[in-house]
């Protein structure tokens, strides 16, 4: 829209050009055009096309579920095999995101101070970003599998008699979500934390506040918006879990997440309309959670923070 406005100014008279420039429309806005073209052609157009597809169900779908052009949506809500995946996804993504955020806070607090080996430790925490989900999955299968080192060590010590089942179930996916999500949450939280002016805390200390009081009264309120943002971003990561749910999870059982269902409809059943429906519902569910968290955030806190929330 604004790009078109920018083009018009080229042809317009000087006075119109000035008037537009006063409102912020001038040829510089043309720089925005390539970005907008990419966003419109590759995001907005396919997205609306996808929404259009959802109301063009296949004949088989209409016959099975009824509901006319809304057959796909009827199928989504009525078919327990599909609809249960919403709950299964939430059961994975919410605890994983919550854990990643809550665990990052103390770690980031400790790593805030300067000490020997900090650089090494930070690199170690950032390392999983390079591993990627697929390698993490492969490693978990070997390391935590029945014959893996974990079970072997626990058996040797005598803590367990039978190998623990740590992969190919809910737990395996959770491990993989923590390993990939935690470093990300940690990086964000520590940058928010470093945005808080240390003199505030020092002042509180001078006034005799203990570490809990300092944390509760100073750090936490300033960090809260950042915590909400981090939660949202890690939740988004965990919510779209796909490869690990298939590789270290139980793809047809307890980790039958929405993205797997969408892919099944897309790649295996070639029902693009149903696949788009599941994909869009997935986006809707996610945006609901994001909106709830951000709404809570604005309810609790207004204004700018040292933590740059």
């Amino acid at each position: 829209m604004s790009g078109v406005g920018g083009q018009q100014t080229g042809r317009a008279t000087a006075s119109l050009r000035h008037r537009l420039a006063e409102r912020g429309i001038d040829p510089t806005l043309l720089l925005l055009v390539p970005g907008l073209v990419v966003a419109l052609a590759l995001f907005v157009y396919p997205f609306s096309y996808g929404i259009g597809l959802t109301v063009q169900p296949t004949a088989a779908m209409q016959e099975q579920w009824g509901g006319g052009i809304l057959a796909n949506y009827v199928a989504f809500f009525r078919d327990p095999f599909v609809f249960d995946s919403v709950w299964l996804t939430m059961r994975l993504a919410l605890p994983a995101a919550l854990f990643n955020v809550l665990a990052s806070v103390p770690v980031a607090m400790v790593l805030r101070h300067r000490f020997r080996g900090k650089r090494l430790l930070t690199s170690l925490l950032v390392l999983p970003i390079t591993l990627g989900t697929v390698l993490t999955a492969q490693g978990l299968l070997i390391f935590a599998g029945r014959q893996g080192w974990i079970n072997r060590a626990l058996l040797e010590i005598g803590l367990i008699d039978e190998p623990l089942k740590l992969v190919n179930n809910y737990l395996g996916v959770m491990f993989s979500l923590v390993i990939t999500g935690f470093p990300f949450a940690f990086l964000l939280i520590s940058s928010y934390l470093s945005g808080i002016d240390p003199s505030l805390e020092r002042a509180a200390k001078t006034l005799g506040a203990g570490w809990w009081q300092r944390f509760r009264r100073i750090i936490l309120p300033l960090l809260a918006p950042g915590l909400a943002t981090t939660f949202v971003l890690t939740f988004v990561l965990a919510f779209s879990v796909f490869p690990s749910a298939r590789l270290v999870g139980d793809a047809m059982g307890e980790t039958r997440v929405m993205s797997l269902m969408a892919f099944r409809a897309f790649g295996e059943q070639n029902d693009y309309a149903m696949a788009s429906t599941i994909a869009l519902m997935m986006g809707a569910v996610e945006l609901l959670v994001v909106a709830a968290v951000l709404g809570l955030r604005s309810l609790l806190y207004r204004g700018t923070t040292g933590g740059k929330g």
């Binding site: 829209m1 604004s2 912020g24 096309y49 945006l287």
Partner: peptide
């Protein structure tokens, strides 16, 4: 600062916030 700036910002923010599968399958 120009009219519609917030809409443009939102347009660029959406692909980052959405699960990749959501726009990936229609795309």
């Amino acid at each position: 600062d120009f009219p519609g700036k917030r809409a443009v910002m939102l347009l660029f923010l959406l692909p980052v916030l959405m699960p990749p599968i959501t726009y990936g399958i229609p795309l």
